[in-house]
């Protein structure tokens, strides 16, 4: 014999007695009527959006400094630590100037949004934004270059 637990719901004990069928009907009707006058909990997606957590890991952004230059120095740490190897960097350096990436491509299909690149970056140049609903037609469109990575907010889906 199993011992009786509070959280186990025994349906056969809660079944109404024979002949008691009208009261449960009205109880059900009142429950549905109460629901009818409750505000729906649906979020109307493209126009209303769910507020995501502050540490949400979405599309990447390459940060720029006050002069509008990329903070990135193309050290390659993010590309090194990236588990699916989604980051490709081609560095460029002139004599006496700071190093900067000539090409910086993130394959957003390969990316697993782990956030390691953000943590590895010594210059705080890359971060993950809250943009989570990028859609497009071709696989090539998911190869994000520097231009796309600078402003990921414009890819927020609005239903237009």
């Amino acid at each position: 014999m199993m011992e009786k637990k509070d959280y186990v719901l025994n349906v056969s004990e809660r079944r109404p007695e024979k002949g008691k069928f009208l009261a449960p009907l009205f109880k059900g009707m009142s429950y549905t009527l109460k629901n009818f006058f409750t505000k729906p909990i649906t979020i109307q997606y493209p126009s209303e959006r769910r507020e995501v957590r502050p540490r949400w890991r979405g599309l990447h952004r390459l940060k720029v400094d006050e002069q509008g230059e990329l903070k990135c120095v193309a050290c390659g740490l993010c590309a090194k630590i990236c588990p699916p190897q989604a980051i490709t960097i081609v560095p460029y350096e002139e004599e006496g100037e700071t190093r900067y990436p000539k090409e910086f491509v993130i394959d957003e299909i390969r990316c697993i949004f782990c956030g390691f690149c953000q943590e590895a970056c010594p210059k705080d140049a890359i971060e993950l934004t809250k943009v989570y609903d990028y859609v497009d037609y071709h696989r090539e469109d998911f190869q994000f270059d520097i231009e796309k990575l600078k402003t990921p907010e414009r890819f927020i889906f609005t239903g237009k």
Partner: peptide, 13 residues
């Protein structure tokens, strides 16, 4: 609409 609202949805919108 009524079925939707009873189920805490909006129905056609």
């Amino acid at each position: 609409k009524v079925l939707g609202h009873v189920q805490l949805r909006y129905g056609p919108m």
